[in-house]
């Protein structure tokens, strides 16, 4: 990545104005993945100094600032003790400790990476995203739409839930071949699968079936049909489906 200019604004409004007024500008959160892209950037806007690095609990809602590092989430007491430890577990094998000390949850979410170990869990947990301009929206809405020129501030998760995340990797910290997240709240179950190799998606139909019929095998069959699985150089679609089935059954068993 070639960067022509680099600014660390001291206020959100400053950051937003810079973003709005500069074509080819880019937001830098951690920067670790972004820098691997081959492109020219007119202006890098780094959110380092905006105090978006926090994890607080308010009325059974967990609010995670977009600039919070993955390692902080891994070791945070809420992430470990709430939601069956789902938030801590989802980041545990993303790179090593070094990488997790600079990669942020905001950057991971906004990147919408296919290989993300984070998105399936956040989707299953029905997380909300708070943007500077666009306000609060459900993560699924964000995943389906292209948001232009905005800054992610915070991820909000309802702690009145239980969750389980399972991923399959060849070596310990490689990109997952598949990852499966399942959460249960008072309304029922939510299942999301990522790295299919396509990016994480909520399996709406399957989640509904599981909620109403409590039949995990049936829900699994429906999920394998509902979501698309493809073959790439890492794994075949058949294998991904088999892994999904195994991981989902495992996750469900441990959740209930």
């Amino acid at each position: 990545m070639i960067i022509k200019d680099y600014i660390l604004p001291n206020s959100l409004s400053e950051a937003y104005e810079l973003l709005k007024n500069n074509k080819k500008a880019v937001i830098i959160a951690g920067g670790a993945y972004l820098r691997l892209q081959k492109r020219e950037v007119s202006l890098a806007i780094d959110l380092e100094n905006l105090g978006l690095d926090y994890i607080i609990e308010e009325n059974k809602l967990l609010k995670i600032g977009a600039m919070t590092k993955l390692r902080e989430i891994e070791t945070n007491e809420y992430a470990i003790n709430e939601l069956n430890g789902m938030l801590s577990n989802m980041v545990k094998q993303i790179g090593g400790v070094q990488l997790r000390n600079i990669v942020t949850i905001g950057g991971s979410v906004c990147g919408k990476y296919n290989f993300s170990d984070i998105l399936p869990s956040l989707i299953a947990l029905n997380a909300s995203l708070k943007f500077y301009k666009a306000g609060i929206m459900n993560i699924c809405e964000f995943m389906e739409n292209d948001l232009k020129s905005d800054i992610l501030l915070e991820i909000i998760i309802d702690l009145n839930q239980n969750g389980m995340v399972k991923y399959f990797k060849s070596t310990y910290k490689e990109y997952s071949l598949i990852n499966v997240a399942i959460a249960r709240n008072k309304n029922g179950f939510n299942i999301a699968v990522g790295a299919r190799p396509g990016k994480a998606k909520l399996a709406k139909l399957s989640s509904k079936i599981l909620t109403t019929e409590k039949d995990i095998d049936k829900a699994c069959e429906i999920l394998l049909d509902e979501l698309s699985f493809k073959t790439d150089f890492r794994a075949s679609d058949k294998y991904r489906k088999a892994l999904t089935k195994t991981l989902l059954l495992e996750a469900y068993k441990e959740l209930v």
Binding site: T171, Y172, E174, F233, R234
Partner: peptide, 28 residues
């Protein structure tokens, strides 16, 4: 068990970074 050397039909090497090659770590 882990180290990949996948090539496309045109000859492109897919596993050309530490992110995708499969180097054994302490946990393997």
């Amino acid at each position: 068990l882990f180290e990949h050397a996948d090539r496309s039909e045109k000859g492109t090497l897919y596993n050309n970074t530490f992110l995708t090659y499969g180097a054994p770590t302490k946990m393997e």
